[in-house]
Amino acid sequence: MAFLAPIAIAKLETLALRAKVIVEGALTGSHRAKLRGSSVEFAEHKEYSQGDEIRHVDWKVLGKADRYYIKQFEQESELTCYLVLDASASMNYVGRSLGKREYACNLIGALAYLLVGQRDRVGLSIFGDARNVRWAQPKAKADHLRTLLAMLEEVSDSPQVGDEVLSSALERLAELARKRRGLIIVASDLFETEGDAPSVLGHLRARGHDVVLFHTLDRDELDFPFEGLSIFESLEGDGRLLVDPASIRRIYQEKMKGFLEHCEQQCLSQGIEYHRVCTDQPFEEVLLGFLAERAGVAGSSSQRPRGQAT
């Protein structure tokens, strides 16, 4: 299946349009989204066994077949979803593809579009600048989508300067979402020098939230393809390093590999759904992967996060 390149989608004028293109591109001709609203639908029959509630016995079947069958229903409650976007300075990096921040905004926007379209309650938390906390309460109204997309568009269009760490933002979110457990979707590069971001995500998971992480990285950050004497300036601090990139490529790649494996292992061990996303990956592919994973989650009690980008 061919998808539009992130660069191509980025050329669309508004985020609302981009979100729509992404979602419809991903869903057209594929399958129905497995995320459901608050309704009770019959799923299947199951032979009665000891311990089952009597009220669920299908008396009609009993009358016809003289056998006890239990009616099973698919629980479809109204989902509360918290979208969390990392807008710290480290997300400002722009490589040969889309910038990390812009990519994450589009991805979160598409998810918002999808979720609101299913009448789920969707909230948004954009962290990065501790002095300018951007937060939208979860709502299921259709016009709430505009609010969310407007917030995302604002972040997407202007570079961010904050250095708020993910852990503090998530702690704040945990406080806000303490009354209602829900799905927390985080898009971040996890570049923070204080604390261990996967561990903080693990805390949310421990509180009963379903946590999905889109570990958003640029291809340059994976491959380190730079050549020639370069001064690397930190995006979040004042550090400058004059270095010959070719000569440290191996060390860098080893360290990066270790970092990625650490994040993935931490997420696996804590039941966090982990998606490694590279900015040159089509949005539809990422979205479909996510939806397929969610379908697996809905059909099975075990949740197995997995990486996608390499």
């Binding site: 570049f191 380190f224 001064i231």
Partner: peptide, 20 residues
């Protein structure tokens, strides 16, 4: 002179991985 000729690359990962 070498410092002046070197291109500047804003990059978060190197600082994150090596600067610490």
């Amino acid at each position: 002179q070498g410092r002046r000729k070197a291109k500047v690359v804003p990059f978060a990962a190197l600082d994150f991985l090596l600067g610490t």
